[in-house]
Design a protein around this nucleic acid. Structure first.
Lengths: 222, 222
DNA sequence: GTAAAACATGAATAGTGATTCATGTTTCAG
DNA sequence: CTGAAACATGAATCACTATTCATGTTTTAC
């Protein structure tokens, strides 16, 4: 329940002229569009939101900017989204789907877990580099929409845990609590991704993967 | 250069009545206090800011809340801090000092690097659990004060890199790029800390340390 | 003791931007 | 064709709160 400073408290819900009004339930406020036109408009708003929020951050991104960027009037925004927070949440969800899909794709036909770790890390870093904005968006979700933030990482973790369990049963990795390991491994990937887009390291992705993977596979022991 | 939505553009600097005005340079606006009284007031504001920002987040924390919590008038805030952003930055700095100090302390007399990793991880998780607010504060710094955010992690990393280099020379760890390793290892600690205060895991700290350390030391290889 | 510096107050100012709404314009089922 | 639903518009509203300032009150140096 964060939100921008202005207009925090919702205004008293405005009751229409009377029950007489035709039940104009529109696509109204958050509803999904019912025609191709609406579909297109909604998408262009969402895309604009991605760019604007991605580069300015949530608080500094204004609905005006977003709609201008999308080429629609300001009021149009509220035909498709109930609040500013809602677009943001959808952005986070969408991004989660994209990353997971990309990693699943990259690790799909890799039968060995360690190779899968390497492939997954490579795919993740490639994705981060291609979508630096989306990376920041997820980070900010912790404050704007904690639920979405948790959902993002948890659905990520679940897949990871499954993978580790399978590998464990197949004797491909040493024993160890899969849940904690999953979070730790995600932490490695996240940190290296952050190196890329937040700290702008000069280290090439390939080297990050090399060093990161060696650590994951063999640890620090001499 | 983020900031809250309200009053983004600074008002035209107000020029005093004339050059006649005594150079009342006060502790004015961001200056440090010059008496014990001032010192105490400043500290109480900073402490209040920690609590308020820690639990409400930066945007939702208002100066009014902070000063109320500190038991001073709203204007008093501006005797010690130039802007809302400034208190926040100081909070981040202060927190960085605290964590690093704690970890340095915990690893000081541990001659072996692997043992030091374990001790450091334990100390870090303990700290995080004791200061869940401060943990969130650092995360939010990425958006409110990116410079402080980077400084926080970079000074952390520097110590880490030194430690790894020393250990490498002493043959206590296997070879591998210390910089990338440092970030990856910090990523593990960060992720496990997040488990604790953001995801509220039931796993006891000791188990997190056990699993995390085993991964760091030996990797996943069977 | 006293002037000046420090510190404290809190009401007033003013920028901002999310959200609404009254009013069009398009689209489409029948 | 035609009326209703869907979609679009953009000016107006107005809750919020960071920051300032004119005016006290305390403390300190001498």
């Amino acid at each position: 329940m964060n939100s921008d400073s202005c207009f925090r408290r919702k205004r008293e819900p405005h009751v229409g002229p009377a029950a007489v009004t035709p039940i104009n339930n529109k696509a109204s406020s958050g509803g999904l569009p019912k025609t191709a036109r609406g579909e297109a408009t909604r998408k262009s708003i969402l895309d604009a939101a991605e760019r604007v929020i991605g580069s300015n951050g949530y608080s500094d991104a204004s609905i005006g900017q977003i709609t201008r960027e999308a080429g629609v009037a300001q009021g149009t925004f509220y035909i498709y989204f109930k609040t500013k927070e809602q677009v943001f949440s959808e952005l986070v969800l969408e991004m989660g789907r994209l990353v997971r899909h990309r990693i699943a794709e990259a690790t799909a036909n890799v039968p060995n877990r360690l190779d899968a770790e390497k492939a997954g890390l490579t795919a993740f870093l490639g994705f981060v580099q291609a979508h630096p904005d989306l990376y920041r968006i997820v980070q900010e979700a912790l404050f704007v929409d904690p639920k979405a933030y948790r959902a993002y990482y948890e659905s990520f973790a679940n897949g990871y845990i499954d993978g580790l369990n399978t590998a464990l049963r197949a004797g491909q990795i040493s024993p160890g609590d899969p849940e904690t390991r999953a979070w730790a491994l995600m932490g490695v990937a996240r940190a290296l991704g952050e190196q890329l887009v937040v700290f702008n390291t000069k280290t090439p992705i390939q080297d990050l993967v090399e060093t990161g993977f060696d650590l994951i596979a063999n640890g620090l022991k001499p």
